[in-house]
Amino acid sequence: MADEDTELMLRVAAGEDAAFEPLVRRMLPRLVGYFRRLGADASIAEDCAQEVFLKVFRARAGYTARAKFTTYLFHIARNHWIDVYRHRKAGPGMVSAEVLRGDGDGDGPRREFEGPSPQPDQAGSHRELVAALRRAVATLGQEQHEVFVLARVENLRYQEIGEILGIPVGTVKSRMHAAWRQIRAVLRQEGIEPP
């Protein structure tokens, strides 16, 4: 039996537009989290998530439940991010919302990909930890980063990641282990251990 997300999408595909709203409500936070892990700031992540839903709804008539809906959704999301990334590399780059709000230091896209440095007023250890984690994730190699991001999206299993990326489950697992160790190592270098 299909999972709840897949059931909802099948109803959308059958022409029941009302099923789309609960699907978006369920998946929007996860998609935004996915794009943020890839390096987007909050506003760009939200924008990307909306674009992905636009693509899903446009292609609704052709949807078939060959895999879980999340697998299908994040496959589209990944391709969308590749497009965004290429556009950024080719174009002038956008000024991040954080920079415009004065939260960043004006380095633009590079800062978006590395995450903001801890500010002097962010004295709390939790905020330091969050900032350090963003920096640590930014140090991951491309393959590790890709697997890591997909795995950290709730309920996305190694098997699904393998299907999305077209790699064996064992490779997914080894990349995940390497990613976590790298993150832990960076945290230790910065003298930070989670509570």
């Binding site: 709203e21 978006v24 929007l28 935004v32 989290g33």
Partner: peptide, 21 residues
Amino acid sequence: FEPAAERAALERDGLRVAAWV
């Protein structure tokens, strides 16, 4: 990457996003 407070706000925004799409 997925602050709890932001997550709740995004779930609320789902209606707006779905309508726009």
